[in-house]
Amino acid sequence: MDRLNRVAALLTGDSRSAQVVPPSGSAAWLTVLAAAAMALLAVFALALTLATGRLAERWSGALSQTATVRISAPQAQLEAQTKQVLDILAATPGIASARAIEPAETRALLAPWFGPDLPVESLPIPQLIEVTETASGFDAEGLSLRLKAEAPGATLDDHMRWRKPLVEAAGWIRALGFLALGLTGAALAAMVTLAAQAALAANRQVIRVLRLIGARDAYIGRAFVRRFTLRAFFGALAGTLPGMAAVALLPAASEAGGFLTGLGFSGAQWLWPLAIPLVAAIVAFWATRAAAFRMLREVQ
């Protein structure tokens, strides 16, 4: 509560404590500008991170689902081959279960495309077998070869194989996004520290006088901390809002569009970029405070 009050006092009132340090002129805008640029970059990095996060989740969700074996054979051989495939699957290590999909289920799967009255039995529709793999997975290549040899009508649809590297790539992009966010924050901290040090050095005499007439370190530091915290906050806000607008203007995500159009924020994720100005303010607060106290120690 005390801390909260202090933060409130810092941001709102007590402008007189800010007045004891002379206004800093045009160089102040550099801090605002830099914070705005960093925030803009942070919005994009955040969008990338969240989007790849969603993507990886979707893809790895698909991975844990089932693979399919499709058997296309003349009606007469279909049943025999189905049985044979099921036997092969049962004997393949890495496969948890395999299940032939009933005609009724197949009909339900096809209904959206052909309507509900589809006479499945009279059509040359392939038999589908749903395969669930164990955590360790199975040897898709070996299974494909075996199926080809023993049940010529069967094909393994191992779509999960090509997705794996994509999920990995998405994970990497995500990690890089986090790294970019971290670096943006570090760069902001470094920039604010340099700017605060310059301001403190320029006001060395002011600080000396304040110290001589009995100002406490916290009081003197506050005048600088307040300035840089506000600058970083409003600068970051000025960068975050156009950044969010730019992300919002990206073409809408669609199922078919895949990766590129999925770059935006979705739903509650829109709240995330709003944290950027707050984080910038917190970073600036601590960076300035550290710089101020380091310098104040040199002034008796």
Binding site: G214, R216, D217, A218, R297
Partner: peptide, 10 residues
């Protein structure tokens, strides 16, 4: 402490 000195100067 530094704060004590500040108070003293008041």
């Amino acid at each position: 402490s530094r704060d004590d000195i500040a108070r003293l100067r008041q």
